[in-house]
């Protein structure tokens, strides 16, 4: 069965390591924070100027001066630090962030990503995504394998304006974990109960399948 967005977030949380500084994008990536394994210390960066994102506030304690990059009210953890935007992107551009998780419209088999604009229809803006993908050491994309019409989002070549080139390392979708290799997409895991055939049929780019493909473990 395909995963819901919480399932995708839960699977991505398995990529975290103790001591990681992590930037989580808007949407599904934000949910990863809910699944950080017990006892593991991971520090979340918010590009609007915070290291040490805490849980959402309890009702009545929202602070207008304390938001995340998705403009939601948040709290901060013990040992947090605040800073301005240029300092924030010094952390990002300087390669100090261990892992970046973000959403996408499309990813190509070369690791290119499109996430900010559908010409003539919708412009979200790139926000910090271009800075993040150009400099992060490790980039994971969280998204559904297909768009609402059923079209594959894992393509030979992106059709929409790019956010970055050759940067995505791993994609976690509702049906699979796929790595970007020099030879194209490589299937790593499948969601519980999802067949290789289904993943193949929903992947437009070249998909390498080698040996047994395990199911995701939760």
């Amino acid at each position: 069965m395909a995963l819901d967005k919480n399932g995708i977030a839960r699977r991505i949380a398995q990529e975290l390591k103790d001591g990681f500084y992590v930037n989580l994008g808007i949407g599904i990536p934000t949910l990863v924070a809910n699944y950080i394994p017990e006892g593991m210390e991971v520090i979340l960066q918010s590009e609007n100027g915070l290291l040490g994102i805490g849980p959402f506030p309890v009702k009545g304690e929202e602070d207008p001066d304390l938001i995340n990059a998705g403009k939601q009210t948040i709290t901060y953890t013990k040992g947090a630090a605040f800073f301005d935007s240029s300092m924030s992107f010094a952390m990002i551009r300087g390669g100090h962030i261990d892992l970046t998780v973000l959403g996408a419209f499309e990813v190509s088999e070369k690791g290119d990503i499109s996430s900010w604009k559908i010409p003539g229809k919708m412009v979200k803006g790139m926000g910090g995504a271009m800075d993040l993908v150009a400099s992060a050491k490790n980039i994971i994309v969280a998204m559904n394998h297909t768009d609402p019409k059923g079209n594959s989002k894992l393509l030979k070549k992106c059709t929409l304006p790019l956010t970055g080139v050759g940067c995505v390392k791993r994609i976690v979708t509702d049906i699979a974990v796929v790595d970007v290799t020099s030879k194209g997409f490589k299937l790593i895991e499948r969601a519980p109960g999802v067949s290789i055939e289904e993943i193949k049929s929903k992947t437009a780019g070249n998909l390498i399948i080698e040996g047994e493909i395990p199911e995701m473990q939760f």
Binding site: D84, S86, F89, R93, V123, M126, G127, G128, A129, D131
Partner: peptide, 12 residues
């Protein structure tokens, strides 16, 4: 539209 970090650094 420009990347957020580039925008901040262009101002700084």
């Amino acid at each position: 539209l420009i990347p957020q970090g580039t925008l901040a650094e262009r101002c700084r």
